[in-house]
Amino acid sequence: MEPAEVEFLAEKEPVTVIPNFSLDKIYLIGGDLGPFNPGLPMEVPLWLAVNLKQRQKCRIVPPEWMDVEKLEEIREQERREDTFTPMPSPHYMELTKLLLNHASDNIPKADEIRTLVKDIWDTRLAKLRLSADRFVREQETYAKLDNLTLMEINTTAAFFTESLNHMYKLRTNLQPSEGAESQEY
């Protein structure tokens, strides 16, 4: 899956906005939204929040975990443990990226948060590479991947599964009757 598609999925995550306009309830196919009143916090999907922000129609309230102290704690824990620790949001990376790109003026210490999340991401990806390496060396056929987020899985998924398939083919020496593509076109 393309990173843009993972981001597309992340855009369904709810975030809180404070609108500066009023609007009646809207009946979307995916559920009702609103009514919107100026100054009253309202939960909307991220795609709408970003759009409203671009039109300067709202202020975005950053998610609770998007906070320097909390993220520092998560980073330390992630560095301490060998396994993957649970993340505050299944789409933490995409949320950080989208919110910091479109609403950095609503997020206190945006630069520090960007660095922290990047640190956490790097630590986790290093672990992911290590475990992928171990998986291949021990010729495993099964792995448990708790606490990994969709974006993390998708950084390596396509390459990793393709490589495993190739290695499997080489190892089992697939019989030519099935696997050979002698008449490829």
Partner: peptide, 11 residues
């Protein structure tokens, strides 16, 4: 293996 609800796997 048992697959617990909500868990993630490569298989």
């Amino acid at each position: 293996v048992d697959l617990e609800e909500g868990s993630q796997h490569l298989i």
